[in-house]
């Protein structure tokens, strides 16, 4: 599959290979509806913000962008939007380098929220829609539509600064959507939202993706990203260190087993090759198996100690995967 890519920066030591595949620029040069970030680098003086950052977001796809603070997510998004210039590399839309005119078709939600505090909600959205090329009538229609959709209709004639932060966030999302963009780039859209607003936001993003719009957003809420996104990219120190579906990110890593064998003595599994005991809690033992270890040998060893009440494969959550990737990098 074209998106099965593990992008590894040349300058960094080899990391765990999460997914296999070809590098994207070989196959997808004339992709339709694809936003490609191709080997973007950016330095702020001595600080390297991005090094050869590469990923792509395809039509109809929700792409989650995760990474520690300062990893380079915001810089990458700002470069994609053209509010920041890259030192090298290219951003492409539908296979062609992105231009100022095509950038107008992106819906953008900056990390630091940006609206005129003293402008009324509706006026503000109409203005932004017009600035993106809508006629006045279309701008009004679209603004009213999104205001209603995002549940801020009764605040449409209030100044933005008088709204609660959560409602300001909804207006901010409406500002990104009001010109019916072809691409959505959202920096931390879920931060500061209440659960209801999170649901509304998730639904809207899902809907946009289903309508064929590539959606990329960054977030620290990894459970949400895991639940919502088709693909996920993990960023560290300005480079993409892992990229793929959650299953792909899980594949190739150590397998964890939880075994509940009440009759077993300590160290019962120590002799099975490729097995490491992670934790023993009461009668339950958590084991970590290398890729070539045989889980059936573990089961046999467990049964040899007496009854086995539980034998389960533990699927690491995105949070655990993320932690693994990031800490591995740090210790490497």
């Amino acid at each position: 599959m074209w998106w099965d890519t593990a992008v590894r920066p040349h300058s960094m030591p080899p990391v765990r290979r999460i997914a296999r595949g070809v590098t994207n620029q070989e196959e997808s040069t004339v992709a339709q509806g694809v936003l490609e970030i191709d080997r973007i680098s950016k330095r702020y003086g001595e600080v390297v913000a991005l090094r050869d950052m590469t990923f792509e977001v395809r039509a109809g796809e929700l792409f989650g962008f995760v990474g520690s603070n300062g990893a380079g997510k915001t810089t990458a998004m700002r470069i994609a939007l053209g509010v920041l210039a890259a030192d090298s590399g290219e951003v492409r839309w539908n296979g062609a380098p992105i231009t100022f005119e095509t950038r107008r078709r992106i819906g953008y939600m900056p990390e630091e929220r940006g609206l005129y505090p003293k402008m009324k909600v509706l006026e503000q959205l109409v203005y932004l829609a017009e600035l993106h090329g809508l006629t006045t009538n279309d701008a009004h229609r679209s603004a009213e539509n999104w205001i209603a959709r995002l549940g801020v209709r009764d605040r449409r004639n209030d100044e933005v600064q008088k709204l609660s932060l959560g409602n300001q966030q909804r207006v901010q999302l409406a500002a990104a959507l009001v010109h019916e963009p072809d691409v959505l780039v959202l920096d931390e859209p879920f931060s500061g939202l209440d659960p209801v607003a999170v649901d509304v936001m998730s639904q809207v993003l899902r809907e946009k993706a289903s309508a064929g719009v590539p959606v990329v957003f960054s977030s620290h809420q990894l459970d949400l990203v895991e639940r919502l996104c088709d693909r996920i990219g993990i960023v560290r120190s300005g480079a993409m260190v892992a990229c793929g579906t959650v299953d792909e990110l899980r594949a190739g890593g150590e397998t964890r087993l939880v075994v509940d064998a009440p009759g077993a003595a300590n160290g019962w599994a120590a002799d099975v090759p490729g097995v490491r005991v992670v934790e023993t809690r009461g009668t339950r033992t958590t084991l970590e198996l290398t890729a070539d270890a045989d889980d059936q040998a573990v089961l046999h060893a467990a049964l040899a100690t007496g009854p086995v009440r539980e034998f389960s494969r533990q699927r690491p959550s995105l949070t655990e995967l993320f932690r693994n990737v990031v800490t591995e990098e740090e210790t490497a």
């Binding site: 053209g82 953008y108 929220r113 940006g114 005129y116 505090p117 932004l128």
Partner: peptide, 15 residues
């Protein structure tokens, strides 16, 4: 005002 409210970032994505 545009700088401090960061709205300039949205504006300069289209202007």
């Amino acid at each position: 005002e545009e700088k401090s409210s960061r709205v300039v970032e949205i504006l300069l994505a289209t202007l």
